Simulated assay, not measured.
Amino acid sequence: MTYNLTEDQETLRKTIGRFANEKVSPLAEEIEHSGDYPDELIGMMNELGIMGLPYEEKYGGGGADLLTMSIAMEELAKVCANTAMVPITQELGAMPIVVMGNEEQKEKYLSKIATGEYRIAFALTEPDAGSDVASMKSTAVRDGDNYILNGAKRFISYADVADVFSFFAKTDISQGNNGISSFIVERNTPGITIGKKENKMGFKGFSSCEVFFDNVVVPKANLLGEEGDGFKIAMETLDKTRPLVAICGVGLAQGALDYAIDYSKTRTQFGKPISRFQGLQWMMADMAMQIEASRQLVYKAATVVDRNETKSSMLGAMSKCFATDVAMKVTTDALQIVGGSGYMKEYPTERYFRQAKLLQIVEGTNQIQRVVIAGQLLK
């Protein structure tokens, strides 16, 4: 480890790594196969403080910065990317409250999110509004001291188990991005319906669902910031959480490389382990270099976000784009090293490969990340 991590961060890395190898790894394939995430693992993560790691101590959290959170998530992603996405998705959903919530909202919701009492989902994407957020059709109409919410959301992570949603809708349909507002919506509010659970190619233990809002009444007290702040809240949320998707890619790639190395030492062809063939040695060397470059870029991005520096948006986009592209390449090469066996479902390489693809798409496709980076360069 080369980023001058503190003693506490190194201790956390070892603790989470031990938990991942002993408790999570034996269940990783079953989680992916069944499509259900076990409550007992979430309970264990709550006990270890993983779920509350990034939240302020006054709300019952661990008070960890983004770099420390990234270190922990890499250890989980090495053995089970589905598991890493549980606290990552939780932080994505909670971040609008972190960045724009008033003290009353933070005390009411973050204190329950940090302790694991509440699960929260980030409800932004719609059937016709993915990268183009301004085209969202969900609406929020003021009615006295309430808002009436209507709309359909798609690909909402953990919507089926969420207790709360960070919901985005237009309070002024004529203003494009400037007409978007953000609300805290409790799941038990009448008018919310969870639609189909998507049958994804990978990350099957990490649910994505449709959500429908039909005349959902939400008090004005649940508006985050002011009307029209929603786009700013969404973009700041993504800027602050993209390094976590990036580190999930780093961990996933590292896990794939570790498995390929171990396999290459035991698989014999032409009278010797395939690890002794220079062609495969060079492949593994390239994989290791790419992973380490990704890791250091994520650490840099996380540090810049923690310091609230002006380059945080660009470096967050860089880390997410680069690390997840590397994850796709490394998992492809790992599967190639394991060969025919690697294509079979009883080997983890095919799981790593399928999961890597999604990371190039979520929280803004990697093409959109390049648009963000170019926009920052040309300012």
Rank of each mutant, 00 (worst) to 15 (best):
I156T: 15
I156Q: 05
I156A: 10
I156K: 02
S157K: 03
A159C: 10
A159R: 01
D160R: 05
V161I: 13
V161G: 07
A162P: 08
A162D: 09
D163P: 08
D163A: 04
V164Y: 01
V164R: 00
V164Q: 02
S166C: 10
S166M: 10
F167L: 15
F168N: 01
F168R: 01
A169L: 07
A169C: 07
A169T: 05
T171V: 10
T171R: 01
D172K: 04
D172G: 07
I173W: 01
I173Q: 13
S174H: 14
S174R: 12
S174C: 07
S174N: 13
Q175T: 03
Q175R: 14
Q175I: 03
Q175S: 14
G176K: 11
N177I: 08
N177H: 10
N178A: 14
I180H: 03
I180K: 00
F183R: 01
F183N: 02
I184S: 01
V185P: 01
V185L: 04
V185N: 01
V185C: 09
V185S: 01
V185G: 00
E186R: 03
E186I: 00
T189P: 11
P190W: 06
P190F: 06
P190Y: 05
G191A: 13
G191E: 11
G191D: 10
G191M: 04
G191Q: 11
G191F: 06
G195V: 12
G195H: 06
G195A: 09
K196C: 04
K196L: 10
K196I: 12
K196P: 03
E198K: 09
N199F: 10
N199P: 06
K200D: 10
M201K: 14
G202I: 08
F203M: 14
F203G: 05
K204C: 14
G205F: 02
G205C: 09
F206S: 15
F206K: 03
S207G: 12
S207I: 06
S208K: 08
S208L: 12
C209F: 07
E210Y: 15
E210H: 11
V211L: 11
V211K: 00
V211T: 11
F212I: 12
F212H: 11
F213I: 08
D214Y: 03
D214F: 02
N215A: 13
V216Q: 05
V216P: 09
V216S: 08
V217W: 00
V217D: 02
V217I: 14
V218K: 00
V218D: 02
V218R: 00
P219M: 07
P219N: 03
K220A: 15
K220G: 13
K220D: 09
N222I: 08
L224T: 09
G225I: 07
G225T: 05
G225N: 09
E226V: 06
E226D: 14
E227D: 14
E227Y: 06
E227M: 07
G228T: 06
G228A: 01
G228V: 06
G230Y: 04
F231A: 09
F231W: 12
F231D: 13
K232I: 12
I233D: 04
I233F: 06
A234K: 04
M235L: 09
E236F: 01
E236Q: 14
T237R: 02
L238G: 08
L238K: 12
D239M: 07
D239E: 13
T241Q: 05
T241R: 05
T241A: 08
T241Y: 04
T241L: 11
R242P: 08
P243C: 08
P243M: 09
